[in-house]
């Protein structure tokens, strides 16, 4: 069964996820004696060899990494025109690189943001900026370490699609989209903060 939520329903994934192949050993980085769990924003995490070695499926809808589009744009141009190309990026990638790589990001039917670890809240700012600053209107998907407890926040930051981690139930996760009925602050899904949304009268003394 599919684990992909779009809006408030569970749907089949039409997109074929393309990843850069892993070449050789992945090294474990340490800082101050601890394994580094998060990559720095702007850190380059792939090699030219990986880009070159990536196999692009010849047909169908493909969801490719931003770095692949930037490096091998010529091969992908026609797929974009055909509406068969979507882009994914990691939370440590620089959003400006995505925006400047397209004449209009609304050419993309889907942008997906990969979050390697639950605790990486950069995904929220990325979603927010895509929707507000860059006017992105099509599907915005979160995937990776996506669990139900992020969903309410992701939705408020402009995401409308969530690929729940494979070992968890998307069905259960749907409930979390409704965790709070009347949040305080304005955000992407509802720009008005509560005091502009409803009339709040002073409470009577208990």
């Amino acid at each position: 069964m599919s684990n992909l939520i779009l809006g408030t329903s569970i749907v089949e994934d039409e997109w074929n996820l393309v990843k850069l192949p892993v070449l050789g050993e992945e090294t474990v980085r340490k800082q101050a004696g601890k394994v580094v769990l998060f990559k720095l924003t702007g850190e380059k995490t792939y090699s030219e060899e990986q880009i070159a070695a990536t196999v692009i499926p010849a047909t169908g809808k493909i969801l490719v990494p931003l770095s692949l589009w930037i490096a091998r744009r010529a091969e992908l141009e026609s797929r974009l025109t055909a509406g068969e190309l979507a882009i994914w990026l990691d939370t440590h990638e620089v959003l400006a690189d995505l925006v400047s790589a397209f004449d209009d990001i609304n050419q993309l039917p889907l942008i997906a943001v990969h979050v390697e670890r639950f605790a990486d809240g950069r995904i929220f700012s990325i979603g927010n900026l895509l929707r507000t600053r860059h006017g992105y209107k099509n599907t915005l998907r979160a995937f990776g370490d996506v669990l139900r407890d992020q969903l309410f926040f992701l939705k408020r930051c402009g995401f409308d699609s969530y690929l729940i981690r494979a070992d968890r139930s998307a069905e259960d996760a749907l409930a979390s989209l409704k965790d709070f009925s009347q949040p305080y602050q304005g955000a992407v899904d509802d720009k008005q903060p509560v005091w502009r949304r409803v009339s709040r009268q002073p409470a009577s003394q208990p």
């Binding site: 639950f118 605790a119 990486d120 809240g121 929220f124 700012s125 927010n128 992020q150 309410f152 926040f153 992701l154 939705k155 408020r156 930051c157 709070f180 949040p183 305080y184 602050q185 955000a187 903060p193 509560v194």
Partner: peptide
């Protein structure tokens, strides 16, 4: 109130 469950800043 604004900071309570601020969606963008939930995981800094």
């Amino acid at each position: 109130q604004w900071s309570t469950f601020h969606p963008e800043f939930a995981l800094l």
